[in-house]
Design a protein around this nucleic acid. Structure first.
Lengths: 154, 154
DNA sequence: CTCGGTGCAAAGCTTTTGCATCCGC
DNA sequence: GCGGATGCAAAAGCTTTGCACCGAG
């Protein structure tokens, strides 16, 4: 569930981004943005494409790819490569920065926050003289709980 | 340059791994291991395949893929997905654990070490009750040096 | 009216798979 | 000799590209 004002805010951000880059504000672009912000969790291009087709919205995969690139550019969407050759996406406006832990038994993706990553980013940036803008941290491990749901579905 | 004894050690480790898993010790598998440990830096499957073909070694891509999986299994090789849809590999025996910083200007990959990542791994593992085995941390940023070589090649 | 954006399908690339042959055990 | 491993090529799967048409500015 996304609050109405969140949707309005991201639309404004996207619109500003498009204007800055002198790109057209097409209905497809905003429809894709809306669809993404109505979804929870991670999704891939095909899932997004299918869910729009299911709603009888006429879009092409090419436009979905194109628009996702734009949304990643303006930080409204985050792109992940969880070790597979399938890009996963996630809405990112108004959500707390987080990283991912992937279960090596069942590939389920868990989220966690750790502020120390920010320190590492700063230290390494200073050391190598880079302005570090963002990062991707993925931990891989197996669940230690007995009768863990992950073991069952593995 | 890899010391002779390093090559001997990794061969022994690979051999033990194959024996444990009841897999055959084929000449192709060891030839691929040797080729990898004679290379520096990151490489992709195609580069490895071509460099073996150039030496007139008869291998197929299928065997290269198969063998890389085995080498990743026994931690002699690390697999990376640097945001592209192209897996990158790196030999990993006898080399210090490190992570990567990718220049957003030129895509050059830099390496760095930070022991604090280990702490994060431990904390998160305890918190979520996972036995965290390994991780992937990638920082993205642009070089702040004026006249940086990265700017020039961008 | 212009030309960037879209839809559709074909092409491109990396990776996987099927099958006959080969060879480690 | 058996059955796993290989080579080759075809197939699969995700992403990009070419082209004609559409519609935002």
């Amino acid at each position: 569930m996304v609050a109405e004002d969140t949707l309005e805010e991201v639309k404004k951000i996207f619109q500003a981004h498009l204007e800055t880059k002198n790109l057209r504000k097409t209905p497809e672009r905003f429809a894709i943005l809306e669809e993404i912000y109505s979804k929870e969790g991670h999704f891939d291009v095909e899932a997004l494409y299918v869910s729009m087709k299911d709603k009888n919205y006429r879009v092409s995969r090419a436009t979905v790819y194109n628009t996702l690139d734009l949304l990643v550019d303006c930080d409204l969407v985050t792109k992940h490569q969880f070790g597979k050759n399938l890009a996963q996406f996630e809405k990112s406006y108004g959500f707390r920065q987080h990283d991912h832990l992937i279960c090596t038994d069942c590939n389920k993706v868990h989220e966690f926050c750790d502020p120390r990553i920010q320190n590492i980013q700063n230290t390494v940036g200073q050391l190598l003289q880079f302005n570090v803008l963002h990062h991707s941290l993925i931990l891989y491990g197996s669940c230690t709980k007995k009768n863990c749901e992950n073991k069952l579905s593995a």
